[in-house]
Design a protein around this nucleic acid. Structure first.
Length: 901
RNA sequence: GGGCGCGUAGCUCAGCGGGAGAGCGCCCGCCUUACAAGCGGGAGGUCGCAGGUUCGAACCCUGCCGCGCCCACCA
């Protein structure tokens, strides 16, 4: 039988005959999150803990949720974001704020429309087969049936949102906000309609804004073409000379209406004003001089396709060139009068190139040629620049205000490094194309008369008979830009708007700073008379896979937070994400991390079970100082310090560090040392009672501190410990007096450090000597009196498993351990000879490190400049360290010398 | 082409002027009456490279190398 199997058998035996003591609190031996979390959440909701109360008289604290798409389900990024928001708002609630965390969803124009169109396609239909009205009905139906799956998942995570204030961007009230905003901007001439080159997705058949286009380096081809000079009018024969232009999209040459060179480019000066003949098409097009051309680049001559390139469009405008479109809305060549009409753009690209090659027009080809290509952020189709009539927001005046609000500190961006990115964007923002050729969304509130007259109508205004509404809808970011004000009731003067605006905090990913945050700043400042929508914007990073790679469906390295919650519980997932959250920085995650967090929950659970089983209790006041042991005082000091630290970190959104600190306190100090020391105290009649009080107190505070991050387990344990209603509404244990109400006791801390050192040293020796942990070793301690550890001998013996030195005590080894400036002697009877080589090896290693330490200190102290310039406390510290090293070396040598040979 | 950030233990990351840290992984030992989802002990790092500032540099400055991200109308 293997040792493991034997252990398992013994374990089984023990478990079977273990009878739960009478006084053990009624906690199951194991934390089973799946059974407890759901009901616990519903209890919180039913109790109204998450419902904001404007009349409460408490200070308001408001966060609006970054609205997930109605099509979405909870992914790991949401889980992170929600954990952070929930942690912050739970702490605020405990601090006594009237907290409003407002939930809702975004109608997500393209994404949702795509989803429903995909279903139609299964039936072989398109949205056009249904017509606009029926299609939109169908989307609403879809929303009712399948939308908002994420809300249920948010409940599982434990999100403390106010469900009574749930919003959807297409709700009546929010739609009114959109229409009002549009009308105001229109009246202020901040919205206009114009024919411009916009980004067009030929699959979604709609315009996109600049930021909805993903640029990626891709392999394409660069083809250089020779355009020959056309014969001057009235003359005969071929022209004299030619010009070479290059393009990555050869098919666009069908729409060329000019060639441009730089005005100062002498190479081409003689051509300016002449015409070249466009191959295939046969059109004569002028050579113009324009500053936009870089004479250093390529040949210094550019083909001009005004309808399919933004720069070309501007050149065309300046030189009154025509702008014929050669691609329709699905990117099929059209209207060129060539045989390429009807071809898809990519087919045409090859066909045109081959035709030109056949005509001897291709003077050079580079393939593959790496260049940047834009893709639709929704469907990844290659975007086509296209000339079309669209609506735009004139952003310059709005953007200036949005920049200023951050510059003058009305809104704080956290971490501050990211503010620069915000400025870069806000200060260089192009006008924003807000019209989309979709059916799902807020329809543009502009009507046209049959005569072409145009009128923008606000909510409640009716168009004259016979007028038609603009068919386009608004960019989905238009309504999400209004989110912080529309959800609170704007444009009405609601109680909520007055109370909760500006919102206290926005927590969102840095990747959405431009898409969303900047837009909310623009609109919020405009609509609310220069009051920005947030006091603070806290940006978090992306969740990556365990190797730090970006997660993507195509890479197949995405993770499912729901599965992890099933397996390990919501608290474990939240704890993992919180622990890895450093402001503005990405974090890597894997199942092993979540498992570790689950283990922490188990640890906490067992510690609480132990404490409760031993009568831990929370009372109004701790026992008087003189009844407390060093261990009690030490742990009380520590919990005070940890509470203060973690509170300060949370205040600064350093959630990862706060969580890390609590993890280590709970595990390394409270469980590993205090609980072990408490066992000794509980065995003593006089110390047991104060110990129970300290255990109860520390547990109480730890649970409250951990609650924002791990709400479920802490609530179960805390209610069991205190008998109170819920930790959700318990007071935050920081602020005002220190939690324990005690002054720090440095002496106690020092003595406990001494105990830990003694115990660790003995354990080290035991491990090296191969003594089983269960084996008691007879020992005699001396020198403890002067070290201040006299009162702790029992504890040291218990933790280091040392038995009394009875009759016939024959020490085989002597450990000399420096504690508090004294040397404690531990003589051990290992019942047999000791492993001298092992002991010698270890002492040798200790000696080497200590000597190195000594040399470091000595050389510093020997440096006259050090004494001169270093601060006194540093000098003192180095001196102490040197003295300690000297003493250690002496001890180690003595022990080496004492070893039998 | 601009801007930002990062290179610290095998992996993921803290630390950001005075003793190189954590989690996971690894090695050894162990049921030790809260916890084997655990306990005890341990190994492992010229803190990317090169200069500089400083009594002292993983930490500040400069340069270089290697990664990553954001922005930009390189035809």
């Amino acid at each position: 039988m293997t040792a493991a199997a034997a252990g398992a058998l013994r374990r089984l035996a023990r478990v079977t005959d273990r009878v739960p003591p009478r006084d053990r609190a009624d906690l199951p031996p194991r934390w089973e999150p799946s059974e407890v979390e759901g009901p616990r959440y519903e209890r919180w909701v039913a109790a109204g803990y998450f419902t904001a109360d404007a009349d409460s008289g408490r200070p308001p604290f408001c966060v609006v949720i970054p609205p997930p798409n109605v099509t979405g389900s909870l992914h790991i990024g949401h889980a992170l974001e929600h954990t952070l928001i929930d942690a912050v708002t739970r702490r605020r609630r405990m601090q006594g704020y009237d907290v409003l965390w407002l939930p809702g969803m975004d109608h997500a124009g393209i994404a949702t429309q795509n989803e429903v169109e995909k279903q139609l396609r299964l039936d072989g239909k398109s949205r056009h087969d249904l017509g606009r009205e029926l299609f939109v009905d169908k989307v609403w139906n879809w929303k009712r049936e399948s939308g908002g799956a994420i809300f249920g998942q948010m409940r599982r995570l434990g999100d403390g949102v106010d469900w009574s204030r749930e919003r959807f961007t297409l709700d009546e009230g929010l739609s009114r906000a959109v229409q009002t905003m549009f009308t105001r901007l229109y009246d202020d001439e901040l919205i206009y309609r114009a024919e411009r080159i916009i980004n067009w997705c030929p699959r979604c058949e709609t315009a996109l804004s600049d930021i909805e286009v993903d640029h990626r380096e891709e392999e394409g081809e660069l083809v250089s073409l020779r355009y020959d000079l056309a014969p001057a009018h009235g003359s005969r024969g071929d022209g004299e000379g030619s010009v070479v232009v290059a393009t990555t999209r050869v098919e666009t040459m069908l729409g060329d209406t000019g060639v441009a060179v730089h005005p100062d480019d002498e190479r081409y000066a003689h051509l300016v004003g002449r015409e070249v003949e466009l191959p295939i098409v046969g059109r004569r097009i002028p050579v113009v001089a324009d500053e936009a051309v870089d004479p250093e680049f390529g040949t210094g001559a550019v083909k001009v396709t005004p309808a399919h390139d933004p720069t070309d469009f501007e050149i065309g405008q300046r030189h009154a060139l025509p702008a014929p479109s050669i691609l329709d809305e699905v990117a099929v060549v059209t209207g060129t009068g060539t045989r390429f009409d009807g071809m898809d753009r990519f087919v045409a690209r090859t066909a045109v190139r081959e035709e030109l090659r056949a005509q001897g027009r291709v003077v050079a080809e580079r393939r593959p040629y790496l260049h940047s290509v834009g893709h639709c952020f929704r469907c990844d189709t290659v975007v086509e620049p296209r000339l079309s009539l669209q609506w735009f927001v004139r952003v310059a005046p709005l953007a200036r205000a949005a920049g200023d609000a951050v510059r003058d500190g009305r809104t704080r961006i956290h971490p501050p490094e990211l503010a620069k990115r915000y400025f870069d964007w806000v200060d260089n923002m192009h006008d924003w194309c807000i019209s989309r050729q979709l059916w799902w969304g807020h329809r543009i509130p502009v009507w046209y008369s049959p005569e072409g007259e145009m009128r923008c109508l606000g909510p409640g205004e009716r168009p004259p008979p016979g007028w038609e509404q603009d068919p386009d809808v608004l960019d989905t970011w238009f309504s999400s830009g209004l989110w912080p004000i529309s959800t609170l009731g704007w444009p009405e003067s609601t109680v909520d708007l007055a109370r909760y605006y500006p919102t206290s905090l926005l927590v969102t990913g840095y990747d959405i700073l431009f898409f969303w945050v900047a837009r909310m700043m623009l609109f919020g400042l405009y609509a609310m008379d220069g009051r920005p929508p947030f006091e603070t914007v806290a940006l978090h990073g992306l969740v990556r896979d365990e190797l730090g790679r970006k997660m993507s469906k195509s890479r197949g390295n995405t993770v499912d937070p729901l599965e992890w919650m099933d397996r390990y519980g919501a608290d474990a997932l939240r704890f993992t994400l919180a622990r890895g959250a450093n402001p503005g920085a990405d974090q890597a995650i894997s199942e092993a991390w979540v498992e570790g967090a689950r283990n922490f929950c188990t640890k906490l659970w067992n510690a609480a079970r132990f404490a409760l089983a031993n009568g831990a209790q929370v009372s109004d006041a701790l026992p008087p100082r003189e009844r407390l042991s060093d261990a009690d005082r030490w742990i009380l000091d520590r919990i005070d310090a940890v509470a203060a630290e973690s509170d300060a970190l949370l205040e600064d959104f350093q959630i990862g560090k706060a969580t890390e600190g609590l993890y280590h306190f709970t595990w390394d100090e409270f469980c590993d040392w205090y609980l072990e020391l408490a066992k000794v105290q509980l065995a003593s009649a006089s110390a047991a009672e104060p110990t129970r009080a300290v255990l109860g107190h520390v547990l109480d505070v730890v649970l409250r501190l951990l609650h924002p991050v791990a709400p479920f387990i802490t609530d179960v344990l805390w209610t069991t410990l205190t008998g109170r209603e819920s930790v959700v509404v318990a007071p935050w244990p920081v602020g005002g007096a220190a939690p324990s109400g005690q002054d720090p006791d440095g002496g106690a801390a020092e003595r406990i450090a001494g105990v830990r050192k003694l115990v660790t040293e003995v354990r080290r020796f035991r491990a090296d000597q191969g003594l089983a942990p269960g084996q008691r070793v007879a020992a005699r301690l001396s020198g403890v009196d002067g070290s201040g550890l006299a009162a702790h001998e029992a504890a040291v013996r218990a933790l280091a498993r040392l038995a009394d030195a009875g009759a016939g005590f024959a020490p085989t080894a002597t450990l000399q351990i420096g504690v508090g400036g004294r040397t404690v002697l531990v003589e051990l009877d290992t019942s047999g000879s000791i492993d001298v080589p092992a002991e010698r090896a270890r002492l040798g290693k200790d000696l080497a490190t200590t000597e190195k330490e000594l040399v470091g200190c000595e050389s510093k102290l020997a440096n006259p400049r050090f004494a001169e310039r270093a601060p006194a406390d540093v000098v003192a510290m180095i001196r102490d360290r040197r003295d300690a090293a000297l003493a250690d070396i002496e001890r180690i040598r003595a022990r080496l010398a004492a070893l039998p040979t």
